[in-house]
Design a protein around this nucleic acid. Structure first.
Length: 450
RNA sequence: GUGGGAUUAGCGUAGUCGGUUAACGCGUCAGUUUGUGGCACUGAAGACCACCGGUUCGAAUCCGGUAUCCCACCCCA
């Protein structure tokens, strides 16, 4: 087949067969965010370029070489969002959400765009679930955020994910620390790898997580950020850990965790897995107390995280986490002849109105081929309607698993009868009874209280 | 941006000391006396062998370039 084009490099299609996996993780993320009091917000895919330049930071790789920036017909420079925080912060400021009370709590699902070379776990278009909280400087918020991320990952069934946290302090402590790092590494200039030499100039903290063995050794003797934190930052970090301990969230303090986006302050963290290759950060975030001011707002300490949906799905895949399959077609009606087709069409509408998944032939296949199709789509029941059924006004529905046939009248009673049949043979009947039982108990307790 | 590996039907693969109609499995579609799926059988459709150029009488096969995919660096979710 000579296609005129293929998908753009670094992008992925989610096909009909696959979409239930996305829906499953998105549902859990939404539920968990809701239970912590976050409500979803949606912002545009593109923004004025300066938003990202200011928000994410001029010096970052993301802004300097990875943005999809273009000029509109009106001559303004716009950029496809490379991350979710800047747009969220912009919207919060623009709509003065602080007037609705603090903190402002929002969650989002976004597609992001970065012009990078694709590899395992890294795409040019990728998707994130994110949490944003504005207007709190309390360490409790930091700890709560981590609890939320942790419980999302737990509920998704991911294993062997470690939480690494660090504090990179406020701008004041960080400046002092960078100075100390420059001083330390300057002694070893000859030993540093070429990229680290540029890091020494641009972003000394990056020196700490260099993968080259020699540099790694040097990092061990380097000054630690924790020794440079001011009293406030140090107390904050200690409090965060105290609350994490109280909640039983396990973590390791990793002083070499640095974030590549300029807006981070104090708490930074990454949830890391080893099961999907080199790009193992499945969720990352932290505090960005200066961001809102940077964008022209009042001082408003804030924090948040982003979780990579593709990466989460990769981990689930790698670890063989089972995702519940979508409901199959419950009733397939094979119809032959015009009269029967019309009858089937009417019946299907009623069946579907009861919330039952149902299908019929829409490509004009013969009976045998229709049955094959019913089998292929995993239909639970099939039913044949032809002239005979029409004349007698009844038909047999066939359990595709057991082959068992049941005769049902093709009148107003059909939908009711069929749904009873479906229910009685449902594998989930046990679950339904259990839920009904729990519900009864719960209602009982409620009435007892009154 | 820098490296390494790969590229043959929808999917997974075979085919290279260059030689007539490029093979197999799965899948798709149709049929096996026309009213019943899974199994089996029969048949069909489906590939300018990623693209462009070169070497050669002759290229899926050798050479060069490009693209895409995979993996790693950088960086990040």
């Amino acid at each position: 087949m000579a296609l005129i084009t293929k998908k753009i490099k670094g992008t992925e299609d989610v096909l009909p067969k696959q979409s239930y996996r996305w829906q499953f993780v998105e549902e859990i993320m939404r539920e968990e965010a809701t239970s912590y009091g976050f409500r979803e917000m949606r912002t545009p895919v593109f923004e004025h370029t300066e938003l990202f330049a200011r928000g994410v930071g001029q010096t970052t790789d993301v802004v300097q070489k990875e943005m999809y920036t273009f000029e509109t017909k009106g001559g303004e420079s716009v950029t496809l969002r490379p991350e979710g925080t800047a747009g969220a912060a912009r919207a919060v400021l623009e709509h003065a959400l602080e007037n609705e009370g603090l903190p402002i709590k929002a969650s989002y699902f976004v597609s992001c765009y970065r012009y990078e070379k694709p590899q395992a776990g890294r795409l040019r278009e990728f998707h994130q679930f994110g949490i944003e909280e504005y207007g709190t400087q309390s360490p409790i918020a930091d700890a709560e955020l981590l609890c939320l991320a942790q419980s999302v990952l737990d509920r998704l069934g991911l294993e062997d994910i470690r939480l690494e946290i660090n504090s990179i302090g406020c701008p004041e402590c960080r400046a002092k620390y960078n100075e100390a790092l420059r001083e330390y590494y300057s002694q070893y200039k000859e030993q540093l790898c070429p990229t680290c030499l540029t890091r020494l100039e641009k972003n000394p903290m990056r020196l700490l997580d260099c993968k080259s063995p020699e540099d790694h050794k040097l990092a061990e003797g380097a000054p630690k950020i924790t020794d440079f934190l001011c009293e406030e930052c140090e107390t904050h970090f200690a409090e965060v850990r105290k609350y994490l301990d109280a909640a039983g969230v396990e973590y390791i303090v990793n002083p070499s965790i640095v974030r590549g986006l300029d807006y981070y302050t104090k708490t930074v963290f990454e949830f890391i897995t080893d099961s999907i290759g080199a790009q193992g950060a499945v969720c990352a975030g932290g505090r960005y107390d200066g961001l809102i001011e940077e964008l022209g707002g009042k001082h408003m300490p804030s924090l948040g995280f982003a979780m990579g949906i593709e990466r989460v799905l990769m981990v689930m895949d790698a670890q063989g986490v089972e995702i519940p399959q979508p409901e199959p077609c419950s009733l397939y009606i094979a119809a032959m002849g015009d009269g029967a087709k019309i009858k089937a069409f009417k019946l299907l509408k009623e069946v579907r109105e009861m919330g039952i998944n149902a299908e019929t032939d829409v490509v004009g296949r013969g009976l045998r081929a229709q049955m094959k199709y019913a089998d292929k789509i995993g239909a639970l029941y099939s039913m044949v309607i032809g002239d005979n059924e029409l004349a007698e006004n009844k038909a047999t529905v066939k359990n595709m698993d057991t082959g068992e046939q049941t005769e049902l009248a093709l009148d107003d009673s059909f939908v009711g009868e069929f749904s009873d049949l479906l229910l009685s043979n449902s594998e989930n009947i046990g679950d339904i009874k259990e839920i009904a039982g729990a519900l009864t108990d719960f209602l009982g307790q409620l009435t007892a209280k009154e």
